[in-house]
Simulated scan of single mutants.
Amino acid sequence: MRFPRFRLLVLLAALSLLGACSFRPTTTLYRLDSGDPATPERNGLAVLLGPVTLADYLQRDAALVQRHKDGSLSAADNARWAGNLKADIDQLLLRQLAWRLDSHRLEAEPGTSGFKPDIQVLLNITRLDSGPKQPAVLEAQWRLLDRRGRLGESRLVRLEEPHKGSSADQVRAQSVVLQRLAEQLAAAIRPLAKQQAQASASAPEPRKSARVSARPKAEAKQPPEPDIPIVSPTRDVKVFRF
């Protein structure tokens, strides 16, 4: 009778494990949404995006960060980013900027060898989060450098987007604020690029140096000597007297 009882215990244990697994919440993976940007049609402005830096709390864990009413933060139990969050942000901004500037010539820092940007975008994201009852908030500072490395413009931004509370809608809202950030960047890049083009067009051309002749200067001609006949003395002159 011991063996049937042992088999019953094993069966009950297996059923309890299966029940625990069936009730364990599944983890859903999310990626930022780049929207539906059109593919650029020309090789326009050359833009280098980066360095792009994120706040420390966005780099500690792949879990979706949840902000609560008291300002505290926690990691979502069943929602995680599908990949690297910074890489997703870079790709979203690159695609949005390429569409808005209509240019294929956009690269993420450090860029390929020989790539010479007309504009470089330095971006520091200090906040990007949301919560079940808190809107998606993006806080960042960006700076634009011209092709000579001079500061063209700098700005602090804060963007908010409401959502319906679910993890999926929170990710949608965070994607929207990043798309709006790309819209602001494109609007600031256009006039700066136009100023650079006008400055290049109005710059004076370098003066051409005078050509140095390889031929030696012709020697000054001496004035011709007068054609005067030379009188030579007459020898053996006889004098006749009459």
Score class of each variant (00 low, 15 high):
P25G: 11
D118P: 00
K217M: 08
V177S: 06
D102Y: 09
L145R: 00
R158V: 05
L178K: 14
P206Q: 02
F23P: 10
L17E: 04
A168Q: 11
P25W: 11
P40W: 00
L11T: 09
A62Y: 08
V212I: 08
W142H: 07
P132N: 13
A14H: 12
D146R: 05
P37A: 09
A79P: 11
L123M: 06
E153D: 13
D61Y: 11
P226C: 12
G114T: 04
G131T: 00
D129P: 01
I119Y: 00
I230R: 12
W142N: 04
S72T: 12
V52I: 15
N124D: 13
Q222T: 02
V231T: 07
P132L: 12
G149V: 02
W81G: 03
G165N: 15
G111I: 02
A62Q: 07
Q59N: 06
L128R: 00
P162F: 03
G149T: 02
D61H: 12
L9R: 03
I189R: 14
A214N: 14
Q184G: 06
S113Y: 06
R95S: 14
A63K: 03
R172V: 15
N124V: 07
G83V: 05
L64P: 02
G131N: 00
G35A: 03
T28K: 02
R143T: 11
G50T: 02
S166L: 10
S130I: 06
Q66D: 10
R100Q: 13
L128I: 01
K238C: 08
A188I: 08
F23V: 14
K86N: 10
N84I: 11
A82W: 04
L8R: 14
L29P: 02
L192G: 15
L32K: 03
A187W: 13
A13C: 10
S175M: 04
I89D: 01
G114R: 01
T234R: 03
L159Q: 06
A197Y: 11
L12D: 01
Q174T: 09
L97E: 02
W142V: 13
N78T: 11
P216D: 08
L159M: 07
V176K: 00
Q96H: 11
